[in-house]
Design a protein around this nucleic acid. Structure first.
Lengths: 347, 347
DNA sequence: AGTTAGCACTTGAAAACTATGAGTGCCAAA
DNA sequence: TTTGGCACTCATAGTTTTCAAGTGCTAACT
């Protein structure tokens, strides 16, 4: 594709800076890309680009650096959009494997994604509208019981309790039956209320009803909210901006454990239906050094999962966007196919 | 307790350096602690301590810094061993709570530990001699099934599979029964062999036996080994040695995810029975900047769990050791009491 | 014999200074 | 509209200087 001179120069500035992490001067640009213009001409164009807010100077006589706006313009109009063949091949190899769990497919895909882009991948599964699907109480020794809770999105939470008295197996079976009958299908944010109402009934079924009640209460109060899985965390250490600045590194690492970051983007994605990818450039929680690219992930019935690439503001947006879009699309196709086109509805 | 002059000086050097992260000179020592000796005397003593390998110089005219040997001598002979009252109170508050899961007790304890010492806490549960206790297959939508595996140490692993055909509930019940009958009690490192032998039997019970077989195989091949839980990871960022040096920070962060580090210490603890605490001073995976303190944790039947404090070589060993020993002892007492003194054997 | 005052010497860290070179903006000529 | 030329700017790297905090050693002191 052919761009006008101004766009060409912006494209090259962005690409040079992404590659070298160094402000770009008029002369450097000509040397590097053998442009058929004089440095003065480039300087005039740069001046114009700066006035438009697409590039900036770090100090009065420095070369130029792309601004957030510049990066965004680059992503929307100038990037090449080619998907790495290695990425395609690697992903296909993963997806061709016969029977696999969702967890393994996601893990393998993210590892490819991180490796190919040198960015951290984060998958978030939200608990929006999530319901309890099953409760199991499993005796694992004479006086320990592991409780397992499964939601309708396949999320599993477990706690192990030490119970002073020996509990009879039959009693346990009754208890599990009761809990499943009464609690299956309950929205997880309503669990605490539901279990409180169940308190009197419990005592009819279970001798040590008080312990069971307390245990369930504790579990439901702290039932995990949104879930994050990180992959390729160590890629951060490869980025020069974090390698030389512990402050920035610390901020970045703390972002990776902050559920709200991903939750917010997820909400944004759900609000605007036609949008499949969201770009945050130097505006992640007021952190000017970090950018992220997020795509929707449709696994089974669950609509609000996301997959995100996170890295320095000077990330390779072309690579990141192309790779992410490709993988998200392929995964969504893969999970849809496995579902046999049968969408179980949202009931 | 009264120490001889040489020991007193070593003790003060260690404590000053731990507090200030600055090499200690003869003059500083006198100023800080109002010692009744001249600087020349101190210098003579320091010279002797250096010859014994307990302290070192960073360059020919610098003050002294404790060596690994010096820290070890300090830990074994000179430290005060007083346990912070706040720590005691906080822990008691946690343990007094009525019904709690093991996970919550450990989490709360480690958070106290980390907060009080400014170090990272790591709890490892080893899979030594671990057996499968229970398998559940839970349908969560028309064509997804979540498999839940519980071991006799209360460890839970889960995978969600998308199955193309609708599976009948009764078939699933049969399958779960078969799997539990045949696999319960199997050592987890023998699961793969066991499931291979089970292949022909499966086809008699389940229509889609191939899928079930593949799914189980995949799960058992990657059945998680040792388990790590981290608490207070952000405490690292407070330590000046890591705050100013990204190299060291990176190495440290990578150690935190390296199971083998904790596995090795666990083996060491199990080899020598009378030892309850192991000190690694600047010798964690050849990393001179990191030290760790590890104690045995006895939860239920499981003997080989450990709790570790990890931080810079210049950590406050007195605080760390006192806190760790106290918490480990209290937790072991707590779990033993809850068990009613009834040790369920190793069957 | 152990302790101390005194002194010459060493060194890293910080401050002050000095290039250097990659960059800009602007103007006048092509 | 483009370009060569030029004066000016500023961060970075390198050098030098200064300084404070140390040491080791020796001779005198208790």
């Amino acid at each position: 594709m052919k761009y006008n001179r101004s766009d060409t120069i912006l494209k090259l500035i962005v690409e040079y800076f992404i590659k070298n992490a160094q402000p770009v001067g008029s002369h450097t640009l000509i040397d590097e890309y053998h442009l058929p213009y004089s440095s003065a001409t480039i300087r005039n164009e740069m001046y114009a680009l700066e006035k438009m807010g697409l590039i900036e100077k770090t100090h009065s006589s420095s070369g130029r650096v792309p601004s957030s706006k510049g990066y965004r313009y680059y992503c929307e109009h100038l990037r090449d959009k080619n998907v790495d063949e290695n990425l395609k091949n690697s992903l296909q190899m993963v997806l061709e494997q016969k029977v696999q769990s969702i967890e393994e497919v996601i893990k393998a895909s993210c590892e490819i994604l991180s490796h190919m882009t040198s960015l951290v991948s984060v998958v978030m599964g939200s608990d929006d509208g999530e319901r309890l699907a099953n409760i199991q109480l499993i005796p694992i020794s004479e006086n320990t019981i592991t409780a397992v809770f499964v939601t309708d999105k396949g999320y599993v939470e477990n706690k192990t309790f030490i119970v002073p008295n020996e509990i009879k197996t039959e009693e346990l079976v009754d208890c599990v039956k009761l809990l499943n009958d009464r609690l299956k299908g309950t929205y997880i944010n309503e669990l605490v209320t539901k279990i409180e109402a169940l308190k009197p009934v419990l005592s009819d079924y279970v001798v040590s009803h008080d312990i069971v009640y307390q245990a369930l209460l504790e579990t439901f109060i702290r039932f995990a909210g949104d879930r994050l899985s990180l992959y390729g965390r160590d890629e951060i250490f490869k980025q020069p901006e974090f390698k030389n600045d512990t402050e920035k590194l610390e901020k970045m690492l703390k972002l990776l454990n902050d559920q709200s970051v991903f939750k917010e983007v997820d909400d944004e994605l759900n609000a605007i239906d036609e949008k499949n990818v969201i770009l945050k450039i130097g505006e992640v929680k007021d952190n000017p050094d970090v950018s992220m690219v997020t795509a929707k992930l449709k696994i089974g019935d669950s609509e609000s999962s996301t997959i995100t690439l996170l890295g320095p503001t000077r990330m390779d947006y072309d690579r990141a966007l192309s790779a992410l879009e490709y993988i998200a699309e392929e995964l969504n196709k893969y999970f849809k196919d496995l579902n046999g086109g049968n969408n179980g509805g949202d009931a």
